[in-house]
Design a protein around this nucleic acid. Structure first.
Lengths: 144, 144
DNA sequence: ACGGCTATGCAATATTGTTGCATGGTCTAT
DNA sequence: ATAGACCATGCAACAATATTGCATAGCCGT
């Protein structure tokens, strides 16, 4: 849950038309404390009113392209989405539970990496560094 | 290309039946300098003799479960596979080119992360830490 | 050689994501 | 206010990736 982000403003600042669907997608992502899959987001939206699955994918692509939302990979099959780093959100690593598929955010300083040495010598363009911890979450450990 | 790994031995040490198909899958992964997708592996195998796509997926799952092969996520849609860290292979980060989908291995010490502080306080089980750099590779940069 | 276990194949299905086209709404310039 | 252009959304079909259930055939220990 983000106390600071103004979602309509995030959209308009990126010069994106402010539509009901886009705002709802962004709110779901921003108000959730952990990243969600496209399917999760679609199902949540569907509960309150109808929206097309394709529209959700397109909005997600759009938000990612404009740097408002971040697409995260998991140890599993589908991508997860969370608010992209901005003035209120530092980049941070994630934890993926191999058992239940839940993805959690870790504290920004719990794991850090120095990119400079690599970026000085790397011949390509570096856009971002993703750190993901895989394992079994507390809850799933208990169940065994 | 791995000069040190004995592939049949890797299989038998893990108490896995040594079959032609498993060995071929493992050799393809081990002899390649960068991780491959399941589809890549399947296509390569198909060129020399027939094998079922499902068999490839099952062998990959098996090798991952037994810690011989490592499943890597990408910024893209499918998982990639490389030799798992062992006596001859240190864990290392990877680079994923968003444009061509090529996945490359980076030097083990090019980016490192200290896990201990996290593992001391984290309530779940930590199996591995994956570091992936996303961007555009040298070749794709040239093409623009 | 026999019985059981395992690896593989095949077909069907599931999941996730994408594309092409139609429609309807919004914005801008007149 | 209206026309034209543009854009967001929906719908259907498709594409890529992965999984499941069941059949078969091969291997292994007795």
């Amino acid at each position: 849950m983000c106390q600071h982000c103004n979602y309509p403003e995030l959209l308009t600042t990126a010069r994106l038309e402010l539509t009901e669907s886009r705002l709802r997608v962004l709110e779901i992502i921003g108000n959730n404390s952990f990243p969600l899959s496209a399917g999760d987001i679609y199902k949540t939206l569907e509960r309150s009113s109808t929206i097309n699955r394709v529209t959700v994918y397109r909005i997600l692509d759009l938000l990612v392209d404009h740097g408002i939302v971040e697409r995260l990979s998991t140890g599993g099959r589908s991508a997860y989405y969370g608010l992209a780093p901005n003035a209120f959100h530092q980049p941070h690593p994630h934890f993926y539970c191999k058992k239940c598929g839940q993805m959690d955010c870790l504290k920004p300083d719990s794991l850090t990496v120095k990119v400079e040495p690599l970026s000085k010598t790397f011949p390509g363009r570096i856009d971002k560094v993703e750190i993901r911890v895989d394992g079994i979450c507390k809850n799933c450990l208990k169940q065994n």
